[in-house]
Design a binder for these strands. Structure first.
Length: 323
DNA sequence: AACGAACCCAACCGCCGCTTG
DNA sequence: CCAAGCGGCGGTTGGGTTCGT
């Protein structure tokens, strides 16, 4: 292995492991405002202590506004099986036929259960068969996640048709060019914003539909407000964690995890001049901070920072509620 | 209720191939 | 043409979750 390339980054100097909501927020904010022309330089510019590759992966596989989460439809599964038969483990190629799906996700689905459906002869099976373990798979998938936004439920039944106008509206403009997984490095901030505008500030999982049962809804972990903005949701606890007072100061001061604020202090600055304050609107809504009509002259970020203290009780209550 | 097994999936690793100077 | 840099891809891992006993 002597001719291996040098590591892309010093493993001792970058943070590894699961991404925190604050890191996600930093990454999203940065890409939303600047795009991602240079993954290698991005972490530093965004004030993240992460490897560029890690940022890229996180963005492509999870944070992109057009990434579609939730259980795979039967059509999608059948398509994967078919395409895998012709292309083999070309996950990226397969992902290009499944708008909103990432190669990683497809790979996972294949390895975890699609593969098991195939008999040793590798015949393209009917995916409708039920296997003992699959019930769990299906339920776990659906329980932890989601589909695209409510008004786009049709996606579920039309996921494969690239000319589907619904899809075209849903997916990012960049995706119209190619795959879900292939994220061109020339994406512009306006493109990102466009997606976000279409999909809402929606970098988490989404629910397919509003559950009639409130308990279920809480389990689904999705919250949406009347603006259609949804919020990270794989874990509300994480979300509340992010909003924990200490972390709120992340956007306010230098006291919290320096890793997010070091370098260019980009996040701090950017949040100050956050033009698109949807996020903060959401937070306000979520926190019960009703926006005073006369307060339109101050930024949401400022208002948020000002108003957060009185909401401690709400935080505590909300957090407890999640437990 | 407790524990081990099975499963899921986000993230990491290292190689490949394209681009650029 | 060559080497370096970088993004992308596919394989793998391991922590967390769920299930079964």
């Amino acid at each position: 292995m002597g001719k291996g390339r040098a590591p892309c980054c010093d493993k001792n100097e970058v943070k590894r492991g699961p991404w925190s909501p604050a890191e996600d927020f930093s990454l999203i904010t940065f890409i939303q405002n600047h795009g991602h022309d240079n993954w290698r330089a991005l972490p530093k510019q965004a004030g993240l202590l992460r490897c560029g590759k890690s940022c890229r992966l996180r963005w492509i596989n999870y944070l992109r506004p057009d990434v579609k989460r939730g259980n795979f439809t039967q059509d999608e599964e059948e398509t994967i099986i078919k395409l895998h038969k012709t292309w083999g483990n070309k996950w990226s190629k397969i992902a290009s036929r499944l708008p909103g799906r990432t190669d990683n996700e497809i790979k996972n689905v294949w390895n975890t259960h699609l593969k098991k459906r195939l008999p040793p002869t590798n015949k393209v099976s009917d995916s409708s068969e039920d296997e003992p373990k699959e019930s769990r798979t299906a339920s776990s998938l659906s329980s932890s996640s989601v589909l695209f936004s409510n008004e786009n439920q049709n996606l579920e039944t039309e996921p494969l048709n690239k000319s589907n106008p619904i899809n075209d509206n849903l997916v990012c403009s960049k995706q119209q060019t190619t795959s879900a997984s292939v994220s061109s490095n020339s994406i512009s901030s306006s493109q990102v914003e466009g997606c976000w505008a279409q999909n809402g500030v929606d970098f988490g999982e989404e629910v397919k539909e509003k559950k009639e049962n409130d308990d279920d809804e809480e389990e689904m972990g999705s919250k949406s407000n009347d603006m259609g903005i949804k919020i990270p949701l794989e874990s509300d606890i994480e979300f509340w964690d992010m909003l924990d007072l200490d972390n709120i100061h992340l956007f306010e001061s230098e006291e919290v995890d320096q890793s997010y604020c070091e370098g260019s202090n980009f996040v701090v600055q950017k949040n100050r001049e956050f033009e698109n304050d949807e996020w903060f609107k959401y937070l306000e809504n979520e926190l019960g901070l009703n926006r005073p009509p006369e307060a339109d002259d101050i930024t949401a970020a400022e208002r948020f920072s000002v108003d957060v203290d009185p909401c401690m009780a709400y935080f505590a209550e909300g957090f407890t509620r999640q437990l």
